[in-house]
């Protein structure tokens, strides 16, 4: 029996000296779903992610997982309530081995050492990094570093996983591999995924729903095929990306 959780953002606002970076954004996601968060550069995606994960304080609004308001918590507690993220600019512990990187993901949420090591090793095998387990993370190829970040995030047994541009810097072939890897993940890991990326091919074939931001505001949300036809979205992207 898989437990269902709900991630909600309610009327979230954030301004930087008068400029509204996130303006009354609300969204909702269940475990087992993949939500694509898209929008042109500067549309507030990163700010939104940073608030969700406790890196930035909000001005108003709520971010909740089930009944817990995680936007009121210090950043280090957020993973324990089921939300972890990866980073657009990779943030691995470069001198630590791949295994240790993943282990930190697990122990960060209080999983005991033995179990953390077992889980970390299992995830690395799953993502095809098993044979590199004892190598320091800095020796990995770019693609493997991206995968290791995902493994480290999964080691925290998240209910919700936030992927910030996981395909950035990957070539087409590698992006396809990533797609194949992520597609079954909500089902297998009972996790809800929010993915931010500029690769529309990836977003369109991966996401159940899309949420589009522009100038900090929600301009569209819904099924991918509906969103891509939305005139406002087409306008925001100048009709180039979604076509």
């Amino acid at each position: 029996m898989k437990s269902k959780s709900t991630f909600t953002v309610k009327a979230l606002c954030k301004s930087f000296s008068g400029l509204k970076a996130v303006d009354d954004v609300s969204l909702r996601l269940e475990t087992g779903e993949i939500l694509g968060l898209i929008g042109p550069n500067g549309s507030g995606k990163t700010t939104l992610i940073n608030i969700m994960t406790g890196m930035l304080p909000k001005d108003s609004g709520q971010v909740t997982i089930d009944e817990h308001d995680i936007s009121e918590m210090p950043a280090y507690k957020v993973p324990s309530y089921g939300l972890v993220r990866t980073y657009q600019t990779i943030r691995l512990f470069k001198n630590l081995s791949c295994l240790e990187n993943a282990v930190i993901g697990a122990i960060g949420v209080g999983i005991k050492r033995r179990e953390a090591t077992r889980l970390a090793a299992e995830l690395l095998e799953e993502l095809g990094l098993g044979y590199k387990m004892d190598l320091p993370a800095q020796g990995l190829t770019f693609r493997d570093q991206r995968l290791l970040e995902i493994a480290r995030a999964l080691a925290a047994k998240p209910k919700f996983l936030l992927l910030d541009e996981p395909a950035a810097g990957l070539n087409e072939e590698e992006t396809d591999e990533l797609l194949a890897l992520l597609k079954p993940m909500p089902e297998n890991k009972n996790v809800g995924i929010i993915i931010v990326d500029h690769d529309m091919r990836l977003i369109m074939s991966l996401c159940n729903r899309l949420h589009v931001l522009n100038y900090g505001k929600t301009i569209a949300e819904g099924l991918p095929e509906d969103v891509r036809k939305n005139p406002e979205v087409v306008k925001a992207y100048l009709g180039s990306a979604a076509s």
Partner: peptide, 25 residues
């Protein structure tokens, strides 16, 4: 080999990231 040690090595390399992974500062 200990949880604390691995967490500390992670934190000494990148404190912010370790904290965001749930390591208590």
């Amino acid at each position: 080999y200990t949880v604390l040690g691995v967490a500390m090595r992670g934190a000494s390399e990148n404190f912010v990231t370790a904290r965001l992974m749930g390591v208590p500062a």
